[in-house]
């Protein structure tokens, strides 16, 4: 079973990963975006870690709702409301339980991904974070490791796609040949989840 501490460690691991990869995310965002994805997410997840330490929510759902709300408040780009909605809706789907099963997390995360698709209007194949998140959620029923692989493959598979949502869509065919920064950061978030599940004590490192 997964408790509030597991979800706090997931967010801490995600913040560390975004911090490590911020320059790469911004570099990916330079040719087809506005070159702020790494810095925006770094600011957002640092704020998430700070507020989780301060408020110390005591259920898995409350951790994710607070984290999502914080992302919406602090990111300043489209990834804020999108990731914020993902975490907040996932947290709401987890309800008030003190511990949740992996199956419950998989179901809740699917509700979160559905909410992101509704908010942004993106579908699989549009060259967005959805291209990493949907395969990850599909594979989560199998294992955390499978979800990580599926998300990473999904992110890589955005390279030949033409963007149909977001700023990159204005570039038309010129968006082809670039890996999508949003799908890349989504894969980092799922990898942080798998890392937290795989290393129960050491995930903060």
């Amino acid at each position: 079973m997964l408790d509030a501490d597991f979800f706090r460690r997931w967010m801490t691991a995600a913040a560390a990963s975004v911090e490590r990869e911020a320059e790469r995310l911004t570099a990916l965002d330079s040719p087809i975006g506005d070159a702020d994805h790494g810095s925006n997410l770094r600011r957002g997840f640092a704020a998430v870690v700070a507020v989780l330490e301060k408020d110390a929510p005591d259920t898995p759902g409350a951790v994710l709702v607070l984290a999502g709300r914080q992302l919406i408040s602090t990111v300043g780009g489209a990834s804020g409301p999108l990731y914020g909605t993902l975490l907040r809706r996932t947290g709401k789907a987890l309800g008030d339980a003190a511990e949740v099963s992996e199956g419950q997390l998989a179901d809740a995360l699917r509700a979160g991904v559905d909410a992101v698709m509704t908010l942004g209007g993106a579908a699989p194949g549009d060259k967005t974070m959805i291209d990493a998140l949907v395969p990850a959620v599909d594979a989560l029923g199998e294992s955390f490791a499978a979800a990580r692989s599926a998300a990473e493959e999904g992110a890589l598979a955005t390279t030949p796609l033409q963007a149909r949502k977001g700023r990159a869509s204005y570039l038309g065919e010129r968006s082809i040949g670039h890996q999508d920064p949003g799908a890349t950061s989504a894969a980092l978030l799922i990898a942080a989840l798998a890392g937290t599940a795989g290393h129960p004590e050491a995930a903060d490192a």
Binding site: R69, I72, G76, G77, A78, G80, P81, L82, G84, T85, R88, A115, L119, G120, G166, R167
Partner: peptide, 14 residues
């Protein structure tokens, strides 16, 4: 456009 639309929608959903 973009994040302006999405942020307002996310706040309304809150």
């Amino acid at each position: 456009l973009g994040s302006a639309v999405l942020t307002v929608k996310a706040l309304l959903a809150e």
